[in-house]
Design a binder for these strands. Structure first.
Length: 443
RNA sequence: GGGCGGGUAGCUCAGUGGUAGAGCAGGAGCCUUUUAAGCUUCUGGCCGUGGGUUCGAUCCCCACCCCGCUCACCA
């Protein structure tokens, strides 16, 4: 007994073959007049590609050794009224593939595999985290203050309370409140929403893993991240060698490590053919001059830290194909990270790049309420100069820190982007079942 | 938002300033082990939308819509 959709028909007068798909596997069905009732035989002649049928019969191999069901009876289940895309070229038009994903799934078997891989990835991550004693939680998606990241939020309104609400841009501040509450290992895998551009690496809603781990710092997170990603890659793809476009990405530990300021200075030296020092990046005037020479646009009000990060991204970003930790960020661009004890202008933070884009962001969490308040105030000042992405003040979060938050390392991992790397998908839309599209007139 | 490319049959794609083409899909016919089955035959189109140039526009020009890539913003 089998049931599924007819994806191919080859018929010869009084006999024929159907290929039946259950969405994952395919099997051939052999029908012949003398093996079926007259009614089922007449039915078989009316069937089209796309119809859903059930088949009863015995398994056998044809003379070409194709495993087949010799049909003894047929059951008609559903009609496909609209013609399916062509069998050989499949469905190529990406607009239809994304807007009508069901067609994409019917016609292009690899699509199903990508989404199975996505689910396997999330399961593997959960297994690793649970194995380390992390508690999975859910925190608010709708927040009165959109905190935990620097991004523009979606705004909505609650009628009964007559209040402005934001779709969250990150769960960070809620998860850290939980560490204050004694949940020393905690994580969430869920959607974030950011009201920003759409590209091959950005969808307005995307899935993020965030985890917080009390009593470890960012160094420990680096080794843990190596272990996590290598394990996930092995479990999901069977290997730590991943084809990605023209490259082969090696997900085995250890990953490359680049300290941001020296790496930016070095690349700038090469680019300009003149010696650039880390100190040039630390001074406002020298950093500005350097950005100008490199053709890097600097928004008004940017300090040397912001300029350094912009210079780094313009010089390195897309070259970081192999997994690379970029670490030790300027404090100015990291309002929630803990400073290095030996250098208050630098925080214990890293971003992990794979395939030329950022996949993870992590730091030793700032748990000093006085310093946190000062950072928020600094952000408010930047907001006043027109930076829409500056972080808002969150009084309750500061109050939570005043109760004493254990030192902790925290990390966010972009699940969609990680799945892009694992599944060799050039666009984030290839790993999101229903990516956001502008509605058309008929929808 | 800027730049570049694209939009022709249900799907994959050709093509031309003068009545619009192929393959697959669909209809009819033949065929009882095929696997992109085969053969015969038929059907199928506001050539993205709206203006303009022209005797005539699917083609040339302008605007707009949608998609992709890319830059900017960001993860």
């Amino acid at each position: 007994m089998a049931a599924g959709r007819i994806v191919s028909v080859r018929s010869f007068g009084k006999a024929g073959f159907f290929v039946l798909s259950d969405g994952r596997a395919r099997i051939q069905v052999y029908v012949r007049q003398d093996a079926l009732s007259e009614r089922d035989y007449q039915l078989s002649k009316l069937l089209d590609v796309g119809d859903q049928i059930g088949v009863r019969g015995h398994l056998f191999r044809t003379k070409t050794n194709e495993l087949s069901i010799g049909a003894a009876s047929l059951q008609f289940l559903a009609k496909c009224f609209l013609p399916l895309p062509e069998k050989w070229h499949g469905l190529q038009d990406v607009e239809i593939r994304y807007r009508q994903r069901y067609l994409d799934l019917i016609v292009n078997p690899d699509v199903r595999r990508v989404f199975e891989l996505r689910t396997a990835t999330v399961s593997a991550i959960r297994d690793v985290l649970k194995g380390h004693g992390f508690l999975e939680v859910e925190t608010p998606m709708m927040q009165p203050i959109a905190g935990g990241a620097l991004a523009r939020p979606f705004v909505t309104h609650h009628n009964a309370l007559d209040m402005k609400l934001y779709m969250r841009i990150a769960p960070e501040l809620y998860l850290k409140r939980l560490t204050v509450g004694g949940v020393e290992r905690v994580f969430e895998i869920n959607r974030n929403f950011r009201n920003e551009g759409i590209s091959t690496r950005h969808n307005p809603e995307f899935t993020m893993l965030e985890f917080y781990w009390a009593y470890v710092d960012y160094q420990r997170l680096m080794t843990f991240t190596e272990e996590l990603l290598a394990t996930v890659a092995r479990q999901v793809t069977g290997s730590t060698e991943l084809p990605y476009g023209e490259h082969t990405i090696n997900m085995a530990a250890p990953f490359r490590r680049l300290s941001m300021r020296p790496a930016a200075a070095e690349a700038a030296s090469v680019r300009l053919g003149a010696s650039v020092s880390v100190d040039d990046l630390r001074g406002l005037d020298t950093a500005r001059a350097l950005a100008a020479k490199l053709g890097v646009e600097v928004p008004k009000g940017s300090g040397p830290g912001k300029i350094t990060s912009l210079i780094f991204e313009s010089l390195w970003d897309t070259d970081l194909i192999q997994p690379t930790f970029v670490y030790d960020f300027p404090t100015e661009v990291s309002p929630l990270s803990k400073q290095r004890p030996d250098d208050p202008d630098t925080v214990e933070r890293f971003e992990l790049y794979i395939g030329g884009f950022e996949v993870a962001n992590a730091f030793s969490e700032l748990n000093d309420p006085v310093e946190q308040r000062r950072r928020f105030e600094e952000q408010l000042a930047q907001h006043a100069t027109g930076d829409h992405e500056a972080h808002a003040m969150d009084e309750d979060y500061v109050r939570a820190l005043e109760y004493g938050m254990p030192p902790a390392g925290g990390e966010g991992v972009g699940i969609d982007r990680l799945v892009q790397v694992l599944s060799n998908s050039p666009s984030i839309r290839d790993v999101i079942l229903f990516p956001l599209m502008r509605p058309r007139g008929d929808e």
